[in-house]
Amino acid sequence: MIIVNPDLCKGCDICIESCPRHVYAKSEKLNKKGVYLPYLDNEKKCRKCHLCELLCPDQAITVEEEDD
């Protein structure tokens, strides 16, 4: 499961650009801080490479390993 923290995200879109499997997409609505947050478009495609976690400059993304 991928969590984007809306309090920390500044909407730089680096996760959308850098994800090799195009999991993220940009939302159309502004949030209360004036940021177009990324949302999970294809979460099933995610292979848990944790690249977005590493490249996110604002430490806003958390990728959880699922225990099943």
């Binding site: 969590i3 809306p6 309090d7 939302s27 947050l37 999970l40 996110c56 430490q59 959880e64």
Partner: peptide, 20 residues
Amino acid sequence: MSNDKVTTQRSENPFMKYLR
């Protein structure tokens, strides 16, 4: 709408334990 899919914070970023 798209914004609804963004979930609230449940667990922490792995680097958060080093940050203030």
